[in-house]
């Protein structure tokens, strides 16, 4: 059970206008909207919007394993923050729960002025990559793939050449050991200047 999601806050300001009419209503449940609306500033609302969004996306990556289908239903993921009253601009870490159907997932998020990174999983490795300026989308994707294989190989005291990364038909990435063909599910997320890898 593993899933992660990152947003580059600078990139969200280029890509999205979360304040656009009806935008939030399509993404968030009434409970989540309530929490967003009571935030005292636009800056806090923005931070919360993207925090909740990454929580939903990370959970989607987990449930895809059991749902065995791809879908876009952000409101089917109900997010709760354990310390919603303490949510501030300076908040560096939050924990919460995401409910999908009858399943609850505990989720951790790391926040700063550059990114929000949310992840689900116990005893997993969660790493963050900060790309050099000007890296192309293809370069970023290759760097991320190389990194996850290298990290995984290090943990298992093998070399990177022992593994390949392959996506299954649902788009879920797996690390495959070329010797015994053992597959280990992993989760990869990119956005803007950052990517997150976990296994």
């Amino acid at each position: 059970m593993i899933g992660n999601d990152i947003v580059d806050l600078r990139q969200t300001r280029i890509d999205s206008d979360w304040d656009r009419p009806r935008f939030l209503k399509k993404l968030f449940t009434s409970k989540e909207l309530e929490l967003i609306n009571i935030q005292p500033s636009k800056a806090l609302q923005e931070k919360l919007v993207w925090l909740l969004w990454t929580m939903k996306e990370a959970t989607y990556k987990v449930v895809m394993h059991t749902e065995k289908r791809r879908f876009f239903a952000p409101k089917s993921f109900q997010c709760t923050l354990y310390a919603a009253n303490d949510f501030k601009l300076e908040t560096k870490k939050t924990t919460g729960q995401v409910t999908f159907k009858d399943q609850n997932f505990n989720i951790t998020s790391e926040l700063n002025q550059n990114y929000i990174y949310s992840y689900i999983g116990k005893n997993n490795v969660f790493n963050l990559i900060n790309f050099v300026k000007g890296a192309s989308a293809v370069q970023k994707s290759n760097i991320t793939k190389m990194n996850i294989i290298k990290e995984f190989a290090n943990q298992n005291n093998l070399t990177s050449s022992s593994y390949i990364l392959r996506k299954n038909e649902l788009g879920i990435p797996n690390i495959i050991n070329l010797k015994n063909l053992k597959e280990t599910p992993c989760s990869i997320t990119h956005h803007g200047r950052f990517s997150g890898i976990s296994f």
Partner: peptide, 11 residues
């Protein structure tokens, strides 16, 4: 298309 922008497509 990034997933957050799917909402923009719908709108």
């Amino acid at each position: 298309i990034n997933s957050a922008n799917l909402v923009d497509v719908v709108l």
